[in-house]
Amino acid sequence: MSVELALVDMLGAVPHWLAVLILGAVPVSELRGAIPVAMGIYGMGPFEAFFFSVLGNLLPVIPLLLFLEPVSNYLRRYSIFDTFFTWLFSRTRRNNTENFEKYGLLALTVFVAIPLPATGAWSGCAAAFVFGVKFRQALPAIALGVMIAGVIVTALTVTGIGLADMVLGV
């Protein structure tokens, strides 16, 4: 059973719009899972599915952008976390700084907009934090990326083309 279907089972007692909102907010499904569930399981129309999925996907963005740095700073008091964050930041910056400096916020928007695993709002917030993007710049870039991803996933769902089919070429 997929993660999305397990979440649908757990959310069986809540209204469908709220279930879609929650599916859009959690990092394992985000809107990439919420839109197909909204349309395929709950029978929502494309606009309703898009609206609740995108809204749900945007809900954690503000807290993540505001609190990743304070949580990281708090955890760095412990050597294991300090070592981990130092490794993560140096590795990420070493492998991606050139592209980020070249394309700036456009790179962040495109990264969030591509509906593939390990991309999306949660990963975009982490990338913004690692690269030191300020809240005022990161929020609109991530929001735009989420909306673009929502349009892509909605269009693929309406046309019956599954993301797995697209990615795997099945």
Rank of each mutant, 00 (worst) to 15 (best):
P15I: 11
V26N: 11
R32A: 08
T97C: 00
S29K: 09
L75F: 04
E48I: 06
E48N: 08
T109S: 08
T97V: 01
A49W: 05
E69D: 06
L88I: 09
Y103D: 07
V54Q: 11
V71I: 11
W122A: 15
A25R: 02
D9N: 15
F51V: 10
L65T: 04
M39T: 13
G120Y: 04
L21W: 11
A118F: 03
L105Q: 05
P27M: 10
Y103C: 07
L11G: 08
L75V: 06
N73S: 07
Y42T: 02
P63Y: 06
V28G: 07
L31V: 08
F52D: 04
I114S: 03
P15K: 10
E4M: 14
S29V: 13
A19D: 13
N73K: 03
H16K: 15
L21S: 13
T83L: 01
S72M: 01
L64G: 11
A19T: 14
S90H: 06
G56M: 07
L65D: 04
A121E: 09
T86N: 09
A113R: 02
F81W: 01
W122Q: 15
D9Q: 15
P70D: 00
F52E: 01
I80P: 01
N99M: 09
A107K: 08
M44N: 14
Y74C: 09
I62Y: 05
E101M: 04
L75Y: 03
I35N: 09
M39I: 11
M10A: 15
E98M: 00
G12R: 12
A121I: 07
F85S: 06
L66N: 11
S90T: 05
F67N: 10
A113P: 08
N95Y: 06
T86G: 02
L7D: 12
L21Q: 12
L23W: 07
A34M: 02
F89I: 10
L58A: 12
K102C: 02
G24Q: 03
M39V: 14
L75R: 03
Y42S: 05
V28K: 06
L23C: 07
V61F: 03
P117T: 10
S90Y: 01
F84L: 09
S72R: 01
P27R: 06
S72K: 01
L11W: 07
F84Y: 06
G120F: 05
P115Q: 02
N95W: 02
M10L: 15
F52R: 02
E4P: 13
L66T: 08
L55P: 14
F85K: 04
E4H: 14
P70I: 00
L5A: 12
G104V: 03
G43Y: 09
A38F: 06
I80C: 10
M44Q: 15
L108Y: 02
F89P: 05
F67L: 14
L59N: 06
N57H: 03
T119M: 05
L65K: 04
G12C: 06
N95I: 01
S29A: 13
W87H: 15
A121W: 03
F100T: 07
T83P: 00
Y78L: 02
A13L: 13
E69K: 09
R32N: 08
S29F: 04
I80E: 08
G24W: 02
N73T: 05
